[in-house]
Nucleic acid binder design. Structure first.
Lengths: 166, 166
DNA sequence: GTTGAAAAGGATAAAAC
DNA sequence: GTTTTATCCTTTTCAAC
């Protein structure tokens, strides 16, 4: 699965930086109970391996711009490979579509859209429909309140040995 | 709306750090065509105002642990304030529930859950149901492919003057 | 793995423009 | 706003254990 073996300290490094991405390397070393040099080597190894793929500032959008966040359940016109491809390409071209997942189950895709207001959202959807990007039906769910937003799922739980079954 | 006026340079700083959160301050200054001192002051102002609320390393989960990501559309048993409260409190106690939004429209909440496998997901849901946290009905959508994940919606679009209507 | 040291560069603050 | 300068701290590398 993983080309790299991670021990507890690596996990600690990942968990720490996922929460405090701008920690200095000397501070990081203290947090994970390592001296600077080996900690620095581990970090470089994690970055080189692509396990840490970047660092991002968290911007509080609501502090700077009024906006609405909308989730969209989308159904395509058909399930031809070319239709999926065209749809995903179209999705990619809208910066307001901030996330997209292909789903198993009742719908083909879940989209997250962030726009200035509902009007702008509807214009985006109309545009998507007019482009014949494969979208057949869609359901709109407006976010009324962000309740929870974790940075990372619990690595220890995911990496622990799977539970025994009888 | 905002207690702080942002000019183009502030926006540039935000956009830059949202993509490259570990840029040194001198590098950042170059990117936004400012010298170190004023750039540093702007950054401190943005952090103090809570517009930048943190920095996070991006971890490539699929490189280190097998897992499934699941979206759940949830309906509560009723719409009493206490029910909402109890549900949100319950949600908060599961680290595997990595995100939760309250919705307007056909469902009450959208959840994102990350677990080791489908079994673990189902156990989490069963646990949530048994706890009588207010969950009445739920629909499960398994993520088969992450298609797009932007760091930030387009700030320039959100902050631009609203379009004229006739 | 560890410490310690040393060179290079970045962060911060104050001056003067 | 800018540059310059000064100081201090962090990063990074290296040698030695």
């Amino acid at each position: 699965m993983s080309p790299i073996k991670l021990d507890e300290r690596d996990i600690k490094i990942l968990a720490t930086l996922s929460r405090e991405g701008r920690l200095s390397k000397s501070e990081l070393a203290k947090r994970v109970n390592l001296s600077a040099t080996p900690c620095w080597e581990r970090l470089r190894r994690l970055e080189k391996a692509g396990i840490i793929s970047g660092y991002h500032a968290q911007i509080e959008l609501r502090q700077i711009a009024p906006h609405v966040s909308v989730f969209v359940m989308a159904e395509l016109e058909n399930h031809r490979a070319s239709t999926f491809q065209a749809f995903e390409k179209a999705i990619d071209s809208y910066p307001e579509i901030t996330a997209c997942w292909a789903l198993g189950g009742g719908f083909d895709y879940l989209l997250q859209v962030v726009t200035r207001d509902i009007d702008s959202y509807q214009r985006l959807i109309d545009d998507l429909l007019q482009r014949r990007a494969g979208l057949a039906r869609y359901f709109t769910y407006i976010v009324t309140k962000p309740v929870k937003q974790a940075v990372l799922p619990p690595l220890d739980v995911l990496l622990a040995a799977p539970p025994k079954r009888k």
